[in-house]
Amino acid sequence: MSAILPPAERLWWKHPLDRVEGTWIVIAFVWCMIMFAMMVGWHIYGKQNLSTETYKTTPELFGKKAQDVVDKYTVRKETDREIPVVHPPPGSDVYLVARLWDWWPIIELEKDQTYKLHLTSMDYNHGFSLQPVNINIQVVPGYEHVIKMTPNQAGTFSIVCNEFCGIGHANMAGRIYVK
């Protein structure tokens, strides 16, 4: 009978389907398979897939590696806080530190070149949100995430922190230049 009463038929499993239901189930199933194929297929043919290369790390270890790159490739300093601007050669490893409450250092990349961006947090979870491209990646402390990144447009890009990380969260900003 109705949905709040037990089924009227003893063997309700055998009740034949209406054609509306049958047709819709087939259509919905096909659509679900298309979506699944898109997600898998993009890994093969697409150019935007998040790398899963990850290492367990510590703030000391990561901080040292980041400092080495900064020492080697700093081209100038910006803002009154003297934040180094790092211009590493194409194809090389770039380190970006997320910490309370900044992204360090500033990075300068070249258009259409590929870099290996290493990301970690020194303290809490942070959110790497590249604007205005709107690419968003979680940054988890203790884990070094290595992402191959190929900027396809020149300009000045900002990194907004979009994972809550305490009282200074809203002011946590970083920058990437692409030439």
Partner: peptide, 23 residues
């Protein structure tokens, strides 16, 4: 879609020199 963050107190990012200027 325009990139505004969730759980975020201040879209102007407190006048940080590196702040992103949202459209």
């Amino acid at each position: 879609t325009l990139g505004v963050a969730r759980r975020h107190w201040d879209m102007t990012m407190g006048g940080s020199p590196l702040a992103y200027e949202f459209p």
